[in-house]
């Protein structure tokens, strides 16, 4: 018992290399960078934030960012939730095929994908030609450089991060729980609401946290697909540093973005803990 206890107490040592690396490579540089937002000119001040939040344009950028992240997360969930079940409940060759479809696109860089989408989305692109050809549209619609195009691309990039955590909980769910519920008189809808959804909720929450925080911070997709028309927090950070050479503005925006992401992660962890420890 005592020996077991000691071994268990030392397990934290396993995290030392990883945490050490993150500390040196991520936490320290980030902290130094972010501290700039509070230092004006030499003493601690929140004036940079006062300026940032006083500007209605910045609120517009925040809204753009959150809106794009919400839409992306929503569509990823809508498409990814059933797909995760298909992946978990398929067998053999079909399952391998599904997994390839899921993993392979991850190995293609976002830049390559973004240029591929422009071929599909541009005014004389495949999608427009098809829609006009089918008579759904009278004339080609503008898709690229719009929010719709942005969401289209972002969902494509982030959907594996919604499917995989849901897949992992569905795979662990005993399918006889569904059968048990059915034999007790539960309709398919009731089974879904009272058995399937609660049991897969931890995966859903993890997927939402992944996709939402990643799409909140996305930079390449909006830059390549929408450009100047759709300013997001990430793009504003880059612009501050690269074009405006305003380090303080850049780090201020970065802190705002970080706070949003932290809020998502903390609240999703809290939600996941609540569903797991439900009395």
């Amino acid at each position: 018992m005592t020996a077991q206890r000691t071994t268990r107490d030392r397990t934290w040592l396993l995290a030392v290399p990883g945490v050490g690396f993150l500390f040196a490579a991520y936490a320290v540089p980030l902290a130094l960078l972010l501290l700039v937002s509070f230092k004006f000119p030499e003493t601690f001040t929140l004036s940079a934030y006062q300026h940032f939040f006083a500007d209605s344009y910045n609120w517009h950028v925040i809204w753009n960012t959150v809106r794009a992240a919400l839409l992306t997360t929503g569509f990823c969930l809508l498409l990814g939730y059933p797909a995760a079940f298909a992946l978990a409940w398929s067998r053999g060759a079909v399952q391998i095929l599904f997994l390839i479809c899921l993993i392979l696109p991850l190995s293609v860089g976002i830049v390559v994908k973004a240029f591929a989408w422009t071929i599909v989305l541009r005014t004389d692109g495949v999608l427009n030609q098809a829609l006009v050809g089918l008579g759904i549209l009278g004339q080609p619609m503008r898709l690229i450089f719009t929010e719709a195009g942005l969401i289209f691309g972002a969902v494509n990039v982030f959907i594996p991060f919604m499917i995989l955590p849901i897949y992992s909980v569905v795979r662990l769910m005993d399918s006889r729980l569904v059968e048990a519920a059915q034999t007790m008189g539960a309709t398919p809808l009731y089974v879904f609401r009272r058995v399937v959804l609660p049991l897969t909720l931890p995966g859903v929450i993890a997927g939402i946290a992944f996709v939402f925080s990643m799409s909140l911070a996305m930079y390449v997709v909006p830059t390549l697909l929408v450009g100047e028309r759709y300013m997001t927090l990430s793009r504003q950070i880059a612009r501050s540093y690269l074009y405006l050479r305003d380090e303080q503005l850049g780090s201020t925006v970065a802190v705002v973005l970080l706070v949003f992401s932290l809020a998502v992660i903390v609240s999703s962890q809290w939600l996941a803990g609540r569903t797991r420890g439900a009395p």
Binding site: R176, E179, A180, A181, T183, G185, P188
Partner: peptide, 21 residues
Amino acid sequence: PPHRRNVGVVFQNYALFPHLN
């Protein structure tokens, strides 16, 4: 369908709902 048969089933490993008391 099973939910309209009014049967009771005891499964091999019980299949109790883990999220419920």
